[in-house]
Design a protein around this nucleic acid. Sequence first.
DNA 1: CCCACTTTGTGCGTGCTTTCACAAGCGCGT
DNA 2: ACGCGCTTGTGAAAGCACGCACAAAGTGGG
Lengths: 231, 231
Amino acid sequence: MTSRPPRPRERGIPEATVARLPVYLRTLQALQDRGTLTVSSEALASAAGVNSAKLRKDLSHLGSYGTRGVGYEVEYLVYQISRELGLTQDWAVAIVGIGNLGRALANYGGFGTRGFRIAALLDADTAMVGRRVASLDVGHIDTLEAVVRDKGVSIGVITTPAAAAQAVATRFVEAGVASILNFAPVVLNVPDGVDVRKVDLSIELQILAFHAQRRNGDGGRGAEPAGLELT
Amino acid sequence: MTSRPPRPRERGIPEATVARLPVYLRTLQALQDRGTLTVSSEALASAAGVNSAKLRKDLSHLGSYGTRGVGYEVEYLVYQISRELGLTQDWAVAIVGIGNLGRALANYGGFGTRGFRIAALLDADTAMVGRRVASLDVGHIDTLEAVVRDKGVSIGVITTPAAAAQAVATRFVEAGVASILNFAPVVLNVPDGVDVRKVDLSIELQILAFHAQRRNGDGGRGAEPAGLELT
DNA sequence: CCCACTTTGTGCGTGCTTTCACAAGCGCGT
DNA sequence: ACGCGCTTGTGAAAGCACGCACAAAGTGGG
């Protein structure tokens, strides 16, 4: 029953492409640090771990930024991708749930290179409130709305226990945050127009386990311990 | 095609389906905890945040475990999915890189419910080696091969700085670990047959930023359709 | 100026994913 | 026993994504 207005798909850059742009960007920045000035699609694709045709098609969605016979100018491409991803502006991030994971994220210095700034840390535990983590004072969850408003937070990160995640998400949304990164192992329910991405360790492990089981003898049992052969 | 060891296809469950099974599993376990005995595809899909037709098709790849007119028996389905994902056996996990993130993972109690067991923590920093984290003694990275062999490690988790990740991955592979979960922001280069999954915070943030920028007035092109307003 | 060589940008075929729509099955009340 | 209502399982269609292969476009040498 989503009576959403027509989805104009707009200037559609395919979602699959968007997901790869950050990888290209990082690869290009590594090249830049090494002083590389231009790079061919073949070389860049190889470094980014993708097919070169796919890379060229991905980049073609941004525009024609390459030079035939030469390749792409690294610096220029870095700028174009950054701009497309919105990294030329400043994004204020709030992290809710300052447990082990929340602290790890807060201290993760290169929080994705530039563009993102951790503006606030919030927790429900009064024993945690007031403590200083990563050069920020941990605030109480009750101040979420004020913090979002005063600090201009536009991205919310949820690292709370599963039980608290939905409530935090709802408060984020009602406070006007439309981008949420969820580390809690629950499916968040949010209104249309709010963008939720989830990072889930146990899901990744389970997918690995599935393939590992298939590689081994499969069946219901564990078969032999890890296969010893490779190559 | 070259000579693939056993069978390349077997009972091909689509990759997209595999990625969703853990979500269904978790949702079912939540229902189970609440005492629910059976669930319809509609209700389960809603709770898992997917379309009910998709859910039914996904489950149909495992077999016909539902009852028409009734739905799915929760407990039975939990078992079937668990078995398919390989969670009925025990997976020994080694975490390399005991920084903030590594510690967070080590302490993350419900490491994805049952099925996974953290068997070892390794680090290159001698100041960290010997310390006790999450009831385990941190070992030195040089013992990786011995630990993998002795503890039967089949899944490696990399939480090192980017610069060290590739070397660790290579050592894992050569030690016989064919499943790697990588948190370091680099593209890992591994031989065929090794399964690498990556979890990358900054990539997720950048994708969120892209969509957020698009929701707003956009940064490069004013392609904003009429009637897009919020608050 | 022309030609050989390099590399981009893309049309097109192929295969995977999602969604729709409905026949087949199952339980229950009568 | 029978039919009604509900729900699964699945063809079929539509939509995406991927990768090949090649024309177009640019560079550099003679």
